[in-house]
Amino acid sequence: MTAKLKVAIAAGGTAGHVNPALALAEELRQRGHEVRFYGESRRLEGKLVPAAGFAFTPIHVTGFDRERPWTAIAALTNLARTEGRLVRDFKRDPALCPDVVIGFGAYIEMPLVRAAAKLGIPYALHEQNSVPGLANKQAAKDASLIAIAQPSVAEAFEKRGAKASAVQMIGNPVRASVLDGNCERGRETLGVPRDATLLVVFGGSLGAHHLNERMVSLKSELLAIEGVHVLHSTGADDFEATERALALSDEEEARYRVRPYIDDMGDVLAAADLVLSRAGASSIAEIAALAVPSVLVPYPHATADHQTTNARYLVDAGAAKMCADADIDDRAFAELVLGLLRDADARAQMRAHAEGLGQARAAERLVDALEAIARPA
């Protein structure tokens, strides 16, 4: 049995960083390890981490604007100050000093991983996307483990001096609340019959507008397929306009549900027969973990078009189809979505391919890898 470890985690800024970190923390806690998060108290992690019952130490860093290079001076000064404070804290209090550290890619990780390196504590990085972020690239050279969720990103880290042996294809951890999704419970909550075919559509608050417009134009054709039900999450910013444009009758509302967001994603994905979505890292991870057949429309303005590379992970595995945002108004896109809704056998094959990726075990694999690199307690 692995000795109980003290694990320090730095993750912050967005749900795409924080939720995989919380999924890891849940698995660590289940195995009896001690977990402490480091992040900004005024940002998302400052709410989600304490709410999940994990210890949280506030730290403060400032980024810099590449278009205003002089802001780097203040950022580096603040980084050095926070790093120094962590070094002193870890030296002064052995109970606080971690056995292993992991950062999830946001700039908030830098003082923690640098303090770990200075004290000889092994540290790991986790990269959710197919294009590595700046913080992870800067910290890659001395990392004992770089856990990736997209095979294509390995080369980018090796070019930054990372040891090839340190880079491992782990996947993107998904929280237990999603993994525990239940089809029957989801359908009962949504009022969708067991024998219906459920299409779930979501684009997130960023870049959902074009998908929402296309769904409006396809409403009649979707509902013309016998037994098809739709759950359409518009994103908060586009909800009222999309609801007006759909102009659902009472009869249509029985089969077409529109929401600003989905807050019970585990049950919804478990209930879905087909998903239509963007291709953010968290969405890809959750879709793969629950093995839902999907049609992916990458957000066209993502940095370095990383959502297209994210999508290829599922497409190349045979678990998804992909369509460029510029092409979703074409007839071919409509035929793709409508055809999959009519073809249960094609969806079953896609589901089997998704299950073969083993994404549901990403958190377990990451804990295994951390246990392997941690210094002896």
Rank of each mutant, 00 (worst) to 15 (best):
L206S: 07
R351F: 02
M350T: 12
E213W: 02
P376D: 13
L28A: 03
G280L: 04
A162T: 13
G204P: 09
A147I: 06
A352Y: 01
T303E: 12
L79N: 01
A166P: 05
N129G: 10
G358L: 01
E213F: 01
L290I: 02
V295Y: 10
L357N: 07
G358R: 09
R351G: 09
Q128M: 06
D99R: 02
F157D: 03
K91M: 13
S144N: 13
V192W: 11
N19Y: 15
R42W: 12
A117H: 03
V113G: 01
Q30Y: 04
V153Y: 03
L76F: 15
R185K: 15
E67Q: 13
V268D: 00
P98R: 04
P151M: 06
P50S: 02
H33R: 07
D305H: 04
V297S: 09
V295S: 11
A52L: 06
G318H: 05
K219S: 02
I373Y: 08
A124L: 01
H17P: 08
V49D: 09
A21N: 10
A166D: 03
A334N: 13
V61T: 13
R114K: 14
G181V: 02
E188R: 15
E83P: 00
G12K: 11
D93Q: 01
F239D: 03
A74E: 14
L145A: 00
A254F: 05
G266T: 03
E184S: 14
L222D: 10
A51W: 00
I108G: 01
L28K: 05
R187F: 10
A285Y: 05
D273N: 11
F64K: 02
P300C: 02
P69C: 10
P20G: 05
E27V: 05
A224T: 04
A289S: 15
A51E: 14
R331T: 14
L76T: 12
A372C: 09
G53M: 08
A147P: 08
I9C: 04
L22C: 03
L44I: 04
A326Y: 03
T309I: 12
L86G: 07
R88M: 07
V295P: 10
L338M: 13
G53E: 00
H210R: 15
M215Y: 02
K219L: 01
A106W: 11
V192S: 10
M215R: 11
D89S: 11
F64N: 07
D273H: 14
V167G: 10
K47A: 14
A344I: 12
Y123A: 07
H306G: 00
R257N: 06
I121M: 04
